[in-house]
Design a binder for these strands. Structure first.
Lengths: 214, 214
DNA sequence: GTCATATTTGACGAGATCATCAGATTTGCG
DNA sequence: CGCAAATCTGATGATCTCGTCAAATATGAC
């Protein structure tokens, strides 16, 4: 445990991390707007004044959570879909993995949902990947949509709504497959193809990706 | 203009109506959470104290706007789809009409979007109709989905996302048709059928339905 | 016109949230 | 240990928001 002797920096960093983690928890639980700075410092078990040693305002710390979350999701999607060639399967795997994780890790799900309501996280994190896959798929003829922009946003909105259903505990166990099947149909696959692709086994990667990097 | 001599009641009702209208405007503009009671009374051009003559709290007046909006949308859908038999066409007409109205009446669009974020208006107003149509369509074999609940929520989420796109000014002019086409595919129509049904002329009913009843 | 009742009005006190800052605590160094 | 720098801390004053209430205004009956 040879600690680098710079305890100041590490203590500072630890406090900051506690604040960010507390903010993540509170946003997931009740949304950013109704979260008070004092609640954050209480949850982080840190003096109220400490907050301002690290962040200028609530918006600033929310921005930090936001950036962290966007980066984490982008990385997760990257890792998940790297080994898949078929654009249709890529989309199915991404959507299924999000729906499944909403079930296995509700805190993560609520965080994503709440951050999307206020800041469009999904658009920021998944959007670019989805757009690229969609474009590739359309170019190759594998996918076929009347309008790429509409399809992109419709997919995103549908995903969030299904995640919401899962978080409310009102979704069937195989919600991920059913949702993916619907998205694939939206993207122009016929019913049989959609049925098949939505049920291909996911790349093995049960639950290693933590909610937070670092 | 023989006024019924009960001016008191009418004056009272007028003030209440001004408050509700102002609240609608402000929710559309900035959401319910960040709307202050004083803002409402200012927008309504009414004394601050008047608010409490009519509503106990901000939540109470938001509830009123909510109930009004849900009722208005349900009525609009009723009127729009009454004369349509094909369940697929009903769904297409409903979704197209919402997307189109978001473009022609952005205040209405934003109101619906913001109220759905906080109170799930769409679920409450469109949900029952959509669920019923879906069930009928599936029973008759016209529609075919892997899971009705998932499909229902996915449709709703997609609609909201597309409305959002329209409100941001980033949607193509025929967004309504493209979106409806996607929804029909989701519901099991093949590409050609979806293409055709999404383009059937809407029932003639340009823009009579006001945002508010009464 | 006068009075009783209904309604509106804005100033006020109570409470919540914010941002600051001087003092306390921890760390690094000799 | 003793001192200086870095970090943490919570009390404090400023600002915002709320809900109340006594006074002002409008209406209706006589």
């Amino acid at each position: 445990m040879a600690d680098a002797p710079d305890r100041h920096a590490r203590r500072r960093e630890a406090t900051r991390a506690k604040l960010v983690a507390a903010t993540r928890t509170l946003i997931a639980r009740q949304g950013a707007d109704s979260t008070r700075i004092q609640e954050i410092t209480d949850e982080a078990d840190v003096g109220f004044g400490s907050f301002y040693n690290h962040f200028e305002s609530k918006d600033a710390i929310v921005e930090a959570v936001l950036a962290e979350t966007i980066a984490a999701q982008a990385a997760a999607i990257d890792a998940l879909t790297a080994a898949i060639d078929d654009p249709a399967e890529v989309v199915a795997a991404a959507h299924r993995s999000f729906v499944r994780r909403a079930r296995s890790d509700p805190d993560w799900g609520w965080l994503l949902l709440r951050l999307d309501m206020s800041h469009g996280v999904l658009r920021a994190s998944l959007g670019p990947y989805a757009q690229s896959d969609l474009r590739v798929g359309v170019a190759s003829g594998r996918l076929q949509v009347p309008d790429e922009t509409i399809a992109l946003y419709a997919m995103g909105g549908a995903l969030l709504a299904v995640m919401r259903l899962v978080l409310d505990g009102a979704a069937p166990p195989d919600a991920d497959v059913h949702h993916a099947e619907g998205v694939l149909r939206l993207l122009g696959l016929d019913r049989d193809e959609a049925h098949e692709v939505a049920r291909r086994p996911l790349p093995t990667r049960p639950a290693p990706t933590p909610a937070t990097p670092r």
